[in-house]
Design a binder for these strands. Structure first.
Lengths: 247, 247
DNA sequence: AAGTGGTCTAGACCACCAT
DNA sequence: TGGTGGTCTAGACCACTTC
């Protein structure tokens, strides 16, 4: 197993298996090599193989059946929705096949409720607005709220160069402590005029709201985002699998 | 470590840690015992300790910081919403603090689109409707769709005795193959008259729709559910944490 | 009975945090 | 520098499926 950058072995293995599934080396509905076989052919321990497979399983690509084997899942893609499976923080950083557009760069304004979410001691926050499109059609509008201090850093260094990346990713080099995790909450609300126009839905129809609160290793909240999704162009997907036999 | 039923050791450990956090034995914001300490005090291997902690982490109860330790998260409860963190299939089977009510038992009717979701070769399906309440207030209405064959089994054995459990849980003893997993998709829609009345929202306001498709180890789809949530009484929550240092 | 994934042990080294 | 979590090895036994 080659030492690819400093990626852990299980990650290299997982990426390789993902590719093999996408390339059709492992066919849908067919049985994957056993864990023992993967262990030998990649020259790693079984534990490492299982770490890798755990990722593939939670991404919904394969099913593991105790006593039987590991099977590549057959799954027709849903109706042209842009649907994503999010099971780890890394998934949040990737938006394959989408384009980003800056609707508004960071500006300071007063918003007590958002400031409270960020645990700030005052009522000023910096907000930027980004819009993401899939096949030329915008499907999500995101408000990025940060402290005025962090917003100032963005104003100095510019926000234009983030391309396929994320705002929090661009911010990380300037943070004292690294991002430790994110809490997210999903809900449904009515679209207002402004948001509806941006994502292509009429006023007062239902849209999906995902709030995310990123925090660093000190427990401080760094960024609060509100993402408004057009439910006809996007769906939030999750795959869960039981392990072993239920009691 | 006692052999509690046939629960795996890491599950017993995880439940114990959960309890200790809820009882205040491990205080919010404080440092948990180290993995080495837990290994010694419970007399298991470190691997087992890590399996247990992995659960606690993904439930959003603690943060693990490399090189520093494991910390109990401080988290004020959100606004009176019934919010759940769902990271595994077991989470789906528990609705602590809620009551279930059968709105309609299984009845056969014709619904081609639902039958297609279940991969049936005909257009008849059996549907039951359940409603769940939190603190006397209904917050979700769920349509349970199964094949007429499975519906017949429910009609023979009754649905009344499921109590805090789930429909799919009650069905499992009668299945040829056990449930392997579930695909779920989250979206936002407008409430219609019937559903709105049941969960306490006006017609045409936004509600949260979660569709779940349960499949067995043969890859056959067993149950398709549509759950309509009152977004003012329920939020779908997830916690994600990065591991180690990002590249 | 043989094969496969699920659980578990007893180590090891490393990257990162605290001091 | 010592402690902590992150990764990894080389085994082992068990539960379950398959033959």
């Amino acid at each position: 197993m080659k030492n690819q950058k400093d990626k852990p072995s299980y990650q290299v293995l997982a990426d390789d298996i993902r590719n093999k599934i996408e390339n059709g080396d492992f066919l849908p509905g067919s049985k994957m090599p056993t864990e023992a076989h993967l262990r030998d052919s990649y020259g790693v321990s079984r534990h490492t193989v299982r770490e890798a497979l755990k990722q593939i399983v939670s991404a919904g690509l394969v099913d593991q059946i105790q006593g039987s084997g590991t099977y590549v899942r057959r799954r027709p893609n849903p109706d042209g929705l842009y649907s994503r499976s999010i099971g780890s923080m890394d998934d949040l950083k990737m938006w394959p096949g989408t384009d980003t557009e800056i609707v508004q760069s960071f500006e300071t304004h007063v918003d007590a409720s958002v400031a409270a979410r960020l645990n700030l001691n005052y009522v000023e926050v910096d907000t930027a607005i980004l819009r993401r499109s899939f096949e030329e059609k915008p499907f999500v509008l995101t408000y990025h709220h940060v402290s005025p201090e962090l917003g100032q850093i963005f104003r100095e260094h510019g926000l234009t160069d983030l391309g396929a990346g994320t705002v929090i990713g661009a911010a990380e080099p300037f943070l004292k402590s690294p991002i430790a995790g994110v809490q997210q909450q999903i809900n449904a609300i009515d679209a207002d005029e402004v948001i509806g126009t941006q994502i292509g839905v009429p006023k007062d129809t239902s849209i999906l709201l995902i709030e995310r609160l990123y925090y660093d290793t000190d427990g401080a909240f760094i960024e609060f985002t509100e993402s408004f999704f057009n439910p006809r162009r996007y769906a939030f997907r999750m795959d869960l699998q039981r392990k072993g036999r239920g009691s």
